[in-house]
């Protein structure tokens, strides 16, 4: 069982959350020419590496907020959590 520290609600079990994938993926900017490659990278291509991974989770059975979680994909250790709009250094 993973325990995720929701920045809004505190420590809760994994059962209350659903997963939203890589949080480092950025939608291409509007109002400019977007190449096919940029769209592919946004929609399909993922690094999905072993080790530290910044990812989105939604606290669906809690505050329903989207949050960012920094987690190790090999050990499942969770290092830090952030609000969705927080910049991660």
């Amino acid at each position: 069982m993973l325990y995720i520290n929701c920045p809004h609600c505190g420590m809760r079990s994994q059962n209350e959350f659903s997963y939203g994938g890589d949080a480092s993926v950025k939608r291409p900017e509007l109002n400019k020419e977007v190449s096919d490659q940029e769209w592919d990278d946004f929609v399909y291509n993922r690094k999905s590496l072993r080790g530290k991974h910044l990812e989105l989770w939604q606290h669906v059975s809690g505050c329903r907020q989207w949050i960012k979680v920094e987690r190790d994909t090999a050990t499942h250790e969770i290092f830090r959590t952030f609000k969705a709009d927080e910049e991660v250094a």
Binding site: L2, S13, Q14, D22, S48, H53, E55, A74, H76
Partner: peptide, 13 residues
């Protein structure tokens, strides 16, 4: 299990 993982072991939920 639903989240990116390289662990060759699962989680109970």
């Amino acid at each position: 299990d639903g989240y990116n993982s390289y662990a060759q072991r699962g989680n109970l939920p």
